[in-house]
Design a protein around this nucleic acid. Structure first.
Lengths: 199, 199
DNA sequence: GCTTTTATAGCACGACCGTGCTACGTTTTA
DNA sequence: TAAAACGTAGCACGGTCGTGCTATAAAAGC
């Protein structure tokens, strides 16, 4: 009758809502089941354990980011201003609207939990690698190939996400955009051509 | 004959160790008491409730950062290379050695928890304001007064702390220093800082 | 038809939690 | 010296948690 795949997604969505509202420690089976409108036993029919539920949610987070990056890659055009494109791409990871603010909040809780949870840590590492990959590709297109620059940009993105999630009143979307613009326009070697003929 | 002040500090230290090892959700009264070598009732003699214990720990975190900043301010000399001084000051907030790595890990858990805990949130806001204050003062000394630059530097610091805490194997202290150096030497409007101590 | 699998729900157990309360030496005070 | 305060410890209660297990109705397969 019901698509198991969809039920799982519904439950994972419930996890996201619960975590966004009350933190990851509130993501108990009972709370998630109530949020999803199910009984605890029903949730456990789809997720064998609490841990598995949380890992599924983490993986879904990774998937959503991947989808977003792919969509952004589709949308770009060769004639666009590279710097503007870059801002849009990295903006996908930042809480510039309420939907992404919620996602970022969940992200923060998960990565913090990942520090002391090896299983989650693996997934968090995937997330971070993905971010660095995007940053690296972006910088390469801008003519910057310094690996330090990649870490630099990644740090700015993480820092902005963290700051805006923790203190949204002091780090508005406009300020985020300003910092982003500042960072991208100050890249050295962006205008001149230090082309690498290896690719 | 024990100094109550010192007992409290010992217990708070135990909190830090427990959080660093297993995350903030492991900082239960029982775990902290065991780590401190006390009974639960004894801990509760100094901290009326679990919440109060955690808030005391958070406040102690703020205090330590303040102490560190003050100490750094003492140490600087007028003739020093401003950029190097800046790196040292700002490095006080980053996990460049194991002690600070532990502190940063605890910091991450606390600020993540602060998102959904108003009491902790207030303390976390203090922390963030302090960081921005230091960043602003530093940039001012370097001849930069752009408020966006302050947010930019603060974001880099937060991002580096987060990245190094979550993935210490991929973001080594050397890399952190490189990113920091990169950020500080690329500041626009900063006078050329190399070997000209008498300005 | 009948049987097997699936979806949903609920109960009960053991573990851990914060906390109110009491007990009992030891130190300080009057 | 008697009394009050302090430091330390522990018990017990009510609550929440994950989870093993069972029940039951609906769907799927034969």
């Amino acid at each position: 009758m019901v698509d198991p795949e969809e039920r799982r997604r519904e439950v994972v969505d419930a996890v996201f809502r619960v975590v966004a509202r009350g933190g990851i420690q509130q993501a108990t089976l009972r709370n998630v089941a109530a949020e999803a409108g199910l009984a605890v036993g029903s949730v456990r029919h789809y997720f064998a354990s609490h841990r598995e539920l949380l890992m599924a949610a983490a993986r879904e987070m990774v998937r959503r980011v991947d989808v977003r990056v792919a969509a952004q890659r589709e949308r770009r055009h060769p004639g666009d201003d590279l710097c503007l494109v870059a801002q849009e791409v990295v903006g996908q990871f930042l809480p510039l609207d309420s939907a992404r603010a919620e996602e970022t909040a969940v992200w923060l809780d998960f990565v913090a939990a990942a520090r002391t949870d090896p299983a989650l840590g693996e997934i968090a590492a995937e997330l971070h690698d993905g971010l660095r990959d995007v940053a690296g590709r972006l910088l390469h297109r801008l003519g910057v190939d310094d690996p330090v620059a990649v870490e630099h940009l990644a740090a700015v993105l993480d820092g902005l996400a963290l700051g805006a999630t923790l203190h949204p009143d002091r780090l508005s979307p406009d300020t985020i955009r300003a910092v982003l613009h500042r960072h991208l326009t100050q890249l050295p070697g962006a205008a001149d051509e230090s082309e690498d003929p290896d690719t």
